[in-house]
Amino acid sequence: MTVMVKAEGVHKSFGPVEVLTGIDLEVKTGEVFCLIGPSGSGKSTFLRCINHLEKINAGRLYVDGELVGYRQKGDKLYELKDSEVAVKRRDIGMVFQRFNLFPHMTAVENVIEAPVQVKGVGKGKARERALELLDRVGLADKAGNYPSQLSGGQQQRVAIARALAMDPKLMLFDEPTSALDPELVGDVLDVMRDLAESGMTMIVVTHEMGFAREVGDSLVFMDGGVVVESGHPREVLTNPQHERTKSFLSKVL
């Protein structure tokens, strides 16, 4: 199994506040990798570092064997140009907690926007693919609706379809169900489960322990900017070794 994401001593601080204080981990190709932890533990920040929405201050972060945000020549690091970063982001899909659909576009326009504008796919072809993807997330009949006319769960599924339209090799989920009514969470998780079964590499920041246990291949518990405990989800969730993990799980389970 090849490695999709590799972090070596990743540090990130916002001004004087250190959010990540040395993250080391490996995400293998094709696995569903769950990140859990209390709020403020740095899991979302780490996720945003992976597609360079945040710049890391120290350490190394690799996606598919390539350094994120920099190019290494000898022992010197060169910052990548914005356009080069943009090219790398094409292969990494991201789903946000607050959906971030483009409100001035219909569902199908949201999905075709990036393929047409970034990859130069023809509109007709992109539309065909977008309708397929919307069908896959169960929203074929909502293609012409604006985001404001969709429920939170439907918006999030459109957002997943939008990310998939770029044919990413890696999908990042930043608490995809946290802003949803409990009733709507299931539909989104079903789509993610389906995606996991298709073999997509997924990194999921989540509070849905049931999802992590069922679908996850690896799980990491983060707190205070470091990885406290990692392992197979079933093991970590049912038999945590670390005190901090135990107290966290006793509160959320």
Binding site: N51, L53, D82, S83, A86, V87, R89, R90, I92, G93, M94, F96, R98, N100, L101, F102, E113, A114, Q117, V118, A159, R162, A163, M166
Partner: peptide, 18 residues
Amino acid sequence: VDEGQTEASHALGMSHAK
């Protein structure tokens, strides 16, 4: 305009100008 819009657009690989 919400910053999340810019982020979502960047995450899709769109340039600043686009």
